[in-house]
């Protein structure tokens, strides 16, 4: 077992926060998805991401302390993941780019020994499914109707513009590019890796929703 001193706390927090925040936004789709099958699929993906966040938090501290009692400013998630949901096309675009990034990252981490390697190895399997799901929808929407093509392109343009904050590897960019091409969509342009950005009021809103119950019951256990 690796101790917390051996893991890169900042990296683990960033991975966990990305997963938690993305899970929160996906779970907002439940009972609002375009089909019941999609309610099941999005709930399943949200649950996988939540599970990843929990395992990662447990490596460095108490999961509820980290999720419920840490100031928003201490969150390391990418700003693209805290933004409110747009339409289903935007959600699929975000999932496509997140899953492409996570798949490459977890695949490389899975080679490592210790707890983080084990968590990453489990996550790769889950994220492979997320990638497949996002790819299938990107292709259907891109090569579906005129309206779905337009919406999928709009969603992709908006998410791609901020994808650099996740610092996707070349492998992730190549994979996403191939999917976008297959979907008869336009690849928006080069991905420029940038530093993680300052959080916005969207994260404050997300965390105040998440903490609505705990805020009025300080010190309670659940």
């Amino acid at each position: 077992m690796s101790s917390s001193s051996e893991v890169d706390t900042g990296m683990v927090l960033a991975l966990a926060d990305d997963a938690l925040v993305a899970s929160h936004r996906l779970s907002e789709w439940i009972a609002r998805a375009p089909s019941i099958e999609e309610d099941v699929a999005l709930a399943n993906i949200a649950l996988d991401l939540l599970g990843q966040a929990r395992l990662l938090y447990a490596l460095i501290g108490d999961e509820d302390e980290l999720a419920y009692r840490r100031p928003a400013g201490a969150f390391r998630n990418a700003v693209m993941l805290e933004r409110p949901n747009g339409d289903f096309g935007a959600t699929i675009a975000r999932l496509l780019l997140l899953a492409a990034h996570q798949h490459a990252l977890y695949s490389s981490l899975a080679a490592a020994d210790g707890d983080l390697g084990a968590i990453a190895a489990k996550a790769v399997k889950e994220v492979s499914y997320h990638r497949d799901h996002a790819r299938a929808w990107t292709v259907r929407l891109g090569d579906g109707t005129e309206e779905s093509h337009r919406r999928m392109q709009d969603g992709l343009d908006a998410e791609w513009a901020v994808w650099g904050e996740l610092a996707p590897t070349q492998e992730a960019v190549d994979w996403a590019t191939a999917v976008i091409t297959q979907a008869t969509l336009r690849v928006p342009g080069p991905v420029l890796a940038v530093e993680r950005q300052e959080h916005t009021a969207d994260l404050d809103e997300l965390l105040s929703t998440m903490r609505e119950v705990t805020a009025v019951h300080p010190g309670a256990t659940w």
């Binding site: 089909s35 999609e38 339409d87 579906g144 779905s148």
Partner: peptide, 9 residues
């Protein structure tokens, strides 16, 4: 809201 998605599929 999901009609366009089902139509696309």
């Amino acid at each position: 809201d999901g009609a366009w998605v089902r139509e696309a599929a």
